[in-house]
Design a protein around this nucleic acid. Structure first.
Lengths: 195, 195, 195, 195
DNA sequence: AATTAACCGAGACGGTACGTCTGGTCTTTAA
DNA sequence: TTAAAGACCAGACGTACCGTCTCGGTTAATT
C-alpha cells in the first residue's frame, strides 16, 4: 500500500530552496538539461524530498513559476475609455514581454511542460491563466457597455483572436514580435468585434 | 579531423527501418520516453548509424513525420467562389483532425520538438507548413479578387487569426474543438477582413 | 550534551517485538538484506527506539540470538566415564546441529557479525561460548583425573582441535559434516591427548 | 531476454583498473564501507562496466585477490626430511602472516565474502586453497614415506587439525597467535598422526 | 492531582549508494 | 567505407536505507 506524505510535516525551508534552485537552473542550463539530481544538490536537499512532494521534474518547474507569480494576482487592465488605445498598450506590452530574451528559456520550459502534461495544463488554467483572462474579459465587457464592441460578442473567442497569434508566433518562431504587429492585431480583432 | 558521412553510401534500408521504428515507438510509448537506444534496437540497426545521420532524437522523429507527409504536397483548397463556405469546410476539417485522438500523441511529439529546437522549427516552416500556408493564402487572394476580402488585408495575419486559436486550444487544451467553434472563428475573421 | 537513555524506562514490549522481528527477518531475507527500517516496521516501532538501545544492526541481531539461547545456560556434558564415547556423542550432535539447514541462515548471520565486529566477538565469548567451553573443559578435566588424557594437556588447544575443524568445514563449506567425520576427529584428538 | 556480454570484447585495461581500485579501497576504507560507485570512480570506469562483468561487490573484491595471488601458484613447502621442524617453520610463518595487521582488513573482507557466498567459496577452494592444500598434503605424504606419519592417516583431516585452530583463533579473535602456539599445535597434531 | 521528563510511534529530513537506463563515442568484424 | 554489434565512460534515474531530527501522545515518577 502507498502512504501519502503528511503535508503538515512539510519543511517550508526545503520547499522554498527547491523552487528557487529549479528556477535558477532552468535559466542556467535550460529545461532539457535540467535534472532532479542538480536541483537537489543546489537546494541542499535530499532527492527523496523532491520525489516525496512532486510527481515529476515538470511539476517542480511548474510550481517554481507558480510561486513566482503568486503576487501577480488581482491586477486589472488599464481602462481609459478608449478600448483601441488600451488594447494596443496591453498587446504592445505582451509582445515586448515575449520578445525579452531573459524570459525566453524559462517560459518556453513552462510551456513545454504544460503541453506535455494535461494535469499541469489544468493547474495552469486554474491558477495562472484563469485570473488574468478574467481581468482581460472584464475590460472587454467595459467596452461592450460603452458600445465599442458588439453586445453579443463571444469574449472567449475574442481573447483567443488577440492572444493566440502572438503565442503561436513566439512558440513556433514563425515571425517577428513588433509593436506594429501588436497594433495590426488589435485593429483586426476590433473590426471583427465591432457592433 | 571530422569527416562528414557520404550520403551516397547511405543505406536506404536502414534509413526506412529507423524512421518506421521511430514512428511506431512515438505512438507506443510517447515522445518523452522514446530513446535512441530503443529506436536502434527496434530497427535492427547500430546506434552509430543513427548518430551518423541525425543530430538528435528530435531530428529522427521529425524526419519520420516528414517522410509520412511527403505525399501531402501540392494540395489545393476548395474554391467554390464562396469564401465563407469554403473556409468553414476547411476549418471544420482542421478542427476534426486535431480532435482525432489517434493523431494526438505523435503530433504533440512533433510540436514539442519544434518548440524546443529552432532549427527543426525552420525546417518545419520550409518543408511542411510553408507549402500548405501558401495554398491557404492563394485561396484568400482569390477571395480578394472576388471582392469578398479587403484588398489591403494582411494575409499572413489573416492566417494566424484563423489557425492560431485552434492551435492554441489544442496545444493547451483550453477548450473544446467543435464544428461550431470553427464556424464562429471563420465568421469573426471574415468580419475582420471585410472590404 | 548527550544524555544516555534511562534503562528503567525501557519498554519491554518494544524490546521483545524488535528482537522477534529481527529473528524473523534474518531467516526470511538473510542477514545481508536485513534493514533496521524493516525491523522497525515489522515490530511496529519507531526507528529511533532501535537506535536508542542498540549500536548497530549487528548488535540487534546478536541480541536476538542471545535472547534465544538464554535458557541453554548451565548445561553439562555427559560423563559416562568413557571419554571416547562421550566425546563422540557430543561431536556427532554438534555436527548434526551444524548440518541442520534450518539453523544455517541465522547462525551464519551471527557468525558474520562476530567476525566483523570485535566488540560483539567479545560479548559472544563471554556470554555464549565461554560457559559452554567451560563445561567442555570440565569433562576433559574429568578424563584427566581418570587417566584417559595426559595430565599436562593444554585443554584450550584440545577444544580447538576438536571444534575448529568442524567450524571451518561448516563456515567455508569445504567438506561434508557426517557422524563418521565426528568419530575420526575424536579418534585423532584423543591420540594427540593420550598420556 | 538477457544477453550475455561477449568476453572477447572485454577491455583488459578497464579490468585491471577495477581490480586495482578495489584492492586499494578495501585497505583504505574497509570492506563494509566499500562501494561499487567508489570503485568505478577510482578506476575511471563506468559503473555499468563493473555490473557487466561481476555479479556483486564481493565478486570484484574476490577477483582482486585472485589476481594478486596468481603468481603464488606452484609453490612447494620446505622438505628437510624432518617433518616436525618443517611443519613448525610453516606454521610459524602462517601464524605470523595472520597476525600481520596490514593483511587484517583485506583478508577478513575476503573471508566474509566466502562465508556469505557459496559460489565464491567454491571458487576459493578451486583456485586458491586447492593448490596450496595439495602442496601441503604432498609434504605430509613425503613424511609418510619416511615413516614419520602413519601410513593410513587421513591427510585432509590432518590439514584441518593443523590449520583450522589457527583460522578460528584469528577469525573469532579467541586467542593470541604466537610462535609458541604454532609449535604446540604441530606437536599435538604429530602425536595424533604418529605411526 | 498536577507536573514533568523520558520514552514511544511516526515519519520527514539530508545523504549515500544502489542497480538500471540512456546518451554519445569508440572499436571490432563482416560485407 | 559503411554497417551491425556492442563495450565503453559518463551520469541521471527513481528507490531503499542510513542515522538524525522533530512532532504529538502516552506513561511513570516526582512534586
Amino acid at each position: 500500500m502507498h502512504k501519502k506524505p503528511d503535508p503538515a510535516r512539510r519543511s517550508e525551508r526545503s520547499r522554498q530552496a527547491i523552487l528557487q534552485a529549479a528556477r535558477e537552473l532552468v535559466t542556467e542550463v535550460g529545461y532539457a538539461k535540467l535534472s532532479i539530481e542538480a536541483i537537489a544538490a543546489r537546494a541542499g536537499v535530499g532527492k527523496q524530498t523532491i520525489y516525496r512532494w512532486w510527481r515529476s521534474k515538470g511539476a517542480v518547474v511548474f510550481d517554481s513559476f507558480l510561486a513566482l507569480s503568486e503576487d501577480t494576482q488581482g491586477m486589472a487592465l488599464p481602462d481609459t475609455g478608449d478600448i483601441e488605445a488600451d488594447l494596443k498598450t496591453v498587446m504592445r506590452a505582451t509582445v515586448a514581454e515575449f520578445a525579452d530574451p531573459a524570459f525566453e528559456a524559462p517560459i518556453r520550459a513552462l510551456n513545454m511542460e504544460i503541453v506535455a502534461d494535461p494535469e499541469l495544463a489544468a493547474q495552469y488554467r486554474d491558477k495562472l491563466a484563469g485570473p488574468v483572462d478574467e481581468a482581460k474579459k472584464e475590460r472587454l465587457r467595459s467596452a461592450q457597455r460603452a458600445g465599442q464592441i458588439a453586445e453579443d460578442a463571444d469574449l472567449d473567442l475574442a481573447l483567443e483572436l488577440l492572444y493566440a497569434p502572438v503565442y503561436q508566433r513566439w512558440l513556433l518562431r514563425t515571425g517577428p514580435l513588433t509593436p506594429e504587429y501588436a497594433d495590426a492585431l488589435v485593429d483586426a480583432v476590433l473590426r471583427a468585434l465591432r457592433p
